[in-house]
Amino acid sequence: MITLRPQEETITVIRRHWINIAGPIIGCSLLALVPLVLPLTTYLPQFIGVELALPLITFLTICFWMVILAFFLVAWVDYYFDTWIITTERVLDVNQVHLFRREIAEYSIGRIQNVSVRIPTIVATLLNYGNVEVETAGEKSFDITAIPKPEQVKELLVRQSQVYQASPFGHRE
């Protein structure tokens, strides 16, 4: 669990644009239809009999759906837990690499120097998502990738950085 410092507040939690999870949703949905579309109940009973074929097809179909659900689970965990948390003091970059690997980096919001927005493709322009590239003083620069409304996030980061630098916490850095 992510713990905040005393007097620190979460401003917003940013996740990647829904287009990033649309592929796995469509792919898994199409795959789930495969046992229903295949004419298994027509052909398999001819070889092993109806009494055996129907329960076997039902069992194997359920097992197939379980595998698809597990695949979707991995994609969803990667999407949902891959977040950027902007607080009053920090930007937390939580990178869910895969199901059992997670990396968390944090950047002081007072050290943000330059923020730029990059819209990579025409699809990104149409769906209003893109990357926000953040340069910091003395720390590693970082990218907030494939997020919705990148312009608003850029404005928020710049504004919050100015607020933090004007505060007593900012003067101490």
Binding site: M1, I2, T10, V13, L73, V77, F81, V94, R102
Partner: peptide, 13 residues
């Protein structure tokens, strides 16, 4: 793994 992630890595609030 799913329930573990939901229990441990949720964002407060």
């Amino acid at each position: 793994a799913l329930t573990y992630h939901l229990r441990n890595y949720y964002i407060p609030g």
